[in-house]
Amino acid sequence: MGQMKRYLPLAILGLLAILPLVGLSTYALHILIMVIMWSIVGMAWNLLGGYCGQVSFGHAAFFGVGAYTAGIIYAKGGASAWWGMPLSIVFVSVFAMVIGFICLRLRGPFFALATLAIGVILRVTAENLTSLTEGDLGIMIRERTWIEKTWYFYVVLTLAAITFYLVKRVIESRLGYYFVAIREDQDAAESLGINTTLYKTVALCLSAVFTGLAGAFYTNYMGYIDPKVVFALHDISIVTIMVVMIGGVATFWGPVIGSVIMVLLAEVIRSIPRLGAAHHTFFGILLIVIIIFLPNGIMGDMPKLKRMMRIGKPV
């Protein structure tokens, strides 16, 4: 059992890696890419919100900065948008440090509100800083690297595998213990010799960097970004939180499961003609239902779910 659990991530990775070889439709491949991209963002948010307890309502800010790093390097720097991936690590971590300096002195709901504001401020800034971002026109990547989606799939899969591995390593190390200690009781953590300001900043930067990488990938993959899309409160920041909450806060697999559910659900809802426009409403209701019935998400409430399944079955 323990052995099986250890190799489960590798088995899943291997399985995913051979999937394109069996000949998936372009649409199926697109859905898969989206699921994997959202897993990355979810895992990143989980590091800060789930383990360290600093709930962010503004992760679109980091996603957007990553996406625009790739976009601007292409549109203004004349370089390949792929350079956005390594460069976003630098820009996003510097940006996150500034945000951390401003927001991390706030606790609980105040931090959440501050991140919410940061997300909005960034969207408005991107809309108005037209000399750099082209404003509402957005940035279009004209030369696509690949016509086929297969290679994008492998890029995002690699990124997800690295993220999963690093998050697991971090959480099982000193950092992970410090993050959870801070989440559980900041005063206690401080009195145990933990520099809470420093480690909250570390959690924020790590979380932001992975989110930014997903953003930079998004630019390359979609070939078009504008402020309303990549800095979106609903479609990025809130969806990120839902991915983690549905899957299971502070669990390794929660964000993965959550993103499968959220991406598929979004597709289904959008395909229903009348309901499509109201998908925000639907997601909102779903979030409330989850908070009430599965407050720990699918992974966190696994024992409870299993019990519910057993009810009605003959013993």
């Binding site: 213990y177 959870v180 200690a181 559980e184 009781d185 005063d187 206690a188 953590a189 401080e190 009195s191 145990l192 010799g193 933990i194 520099n195 809470t196």
Partner: peptide
Amino acid sequence: LRPNKICGLGVARTFQVVKPLQRMTVLD
């Protein structure tokens, strides 16, 4: 100095109103 620094120098404390890290095991 901040509490974490003072703890680092060698002063530890307990709390009258206990502050366990609730969702961690005793060992953790």
